[in-house]
């Protein structure tokens, strides 16, 4: 079992070989009026190029806040986050929890959105969008409006839109939280298959430990608010990986071990919740 607890030590500012992302002491506080919420950190994380990292932790532990900081939607209030990026490709793109699919655009127009923002010529944008619609399994629905699609299909639109810009770092914020359990398994398989094709760097936030273990190269357990790294587990299952890895006894054992760590954090956040109310 490769379980280790990382200490919150400041990492050196130089780029470690092959690193894509390095967070050192990243913190985020929210101030509204007189109240102050310490949402995240100090948070330290190193992600290698091409690595699939899953963050799991209780609700409100700041996982999403971290993704938003990586995406540049939100500045940290302390610490630094370094990204080593190549020229000529989109930096990051995000799959949002509530899909973020624009209801007034067709499936094709939604998937094409990021390409249009990047000023890709119309013809090429259409071709690339169509290609991603095919890969994600939505062929035939190009002209449909999101309101006519199921939740699972809408989330596929959102994933295709994020992937179509070929981001160097794909950020996924509980992308499957709102779809049913069966659809979840299907979408995880779709994601694994699509990811295998080019193995880009992914940071995947989820509530589900099982999902994290099925998808990730590493699973990072985040503490109750303010979120810190409690445990950083290297997932021993090989690649390419199918989602039925979850039926092996090794999976069950690993799940149990990590769950013991995670449960304490969930209980801590529950306790904090009762104090606050």
């Amino acid at each position: 079992m490769d379980t280790q607890t990382r200490q919150a030590t400041a990492a050196p500012p130089t780029a470690p070989a092959g690193a894509k992302l390095l967070a050192s002491g990243v913190e985020r506080q929210f101030i509204s009026g007189k109240s102050r919420v310490h949402a995240l950190g100090p948070f330290d994380l190193r992600v290698a190029d091409g690595e699939f990292v899953c963050l799991v932790g209780p609700s409100g532990c700041g996982k999403s806040t971290f993704l938003r900081i990586v995406n540049g939607l939100l500045p940290p209030t302390a610490g630094t986050l370094d990204l080593w990026l190549d020229e000529g490709r989109a930096d990051t793109s995000m799959v949002f929890q509530d899909y973020g699919v624009l209801p007034w655009k067709t499936v094709l127009a939604n998937v094409r959105f990021g390409l249009e923002m990047a000023k890709v010529p119309r013809r090429e944008a259409n071709e690339r969008a169509m290609e991603w619609i095919r890969r994600i399994g939505l062929s035939g629905f190009e002209k449909a409006y999101p309101a006519t699609l199921s939740g699972g299909m809408r989330q596929r639109v959102s994933i295709a839109r994020a992937l179509a810009v070929q981001p160097q770092i794909l950020l996924m914020d509980e992308p499957f939280a709102a779809v049913d359990a069966q659809m979840r398994v299907v979408l995880q398989e779709v994601l694994l298959k699509v990811w295998e094709e080019d193995r880009r760097t992914v940071i995947f936030v989820t509530h589900s430990l099982e999902e994290a273990l099925v998808l990730g190269d590493r699973v990072v357990v985040v503490s109750a608010r303010p979120g810190r790294v409690v445990s950083d587990i290297t997932v021993p299952f090989g690649r390419p990986r199918a989602s039925d890895v979850r039926r092996t006894p090794e999976f069950a054992e690993l799940h149990q071990n990590v769950w013991d760590v995670l449960r304490d954090e969930v209980q801590a956040s529950l306790a904090a919740g009762t104090e606050a109310s």
Partner: peptide
């Protein structure tokens, strides 16, 4: 400019809370 043909993007606090 990092060694490889890429760039380093740093996100940090613009100000304390």
């Amino acid at each position: 400019k990092p060694p490889a043909n890429g760039r380093l993007v740093r996100r940090e606090a613009s100000a304390t809370p």
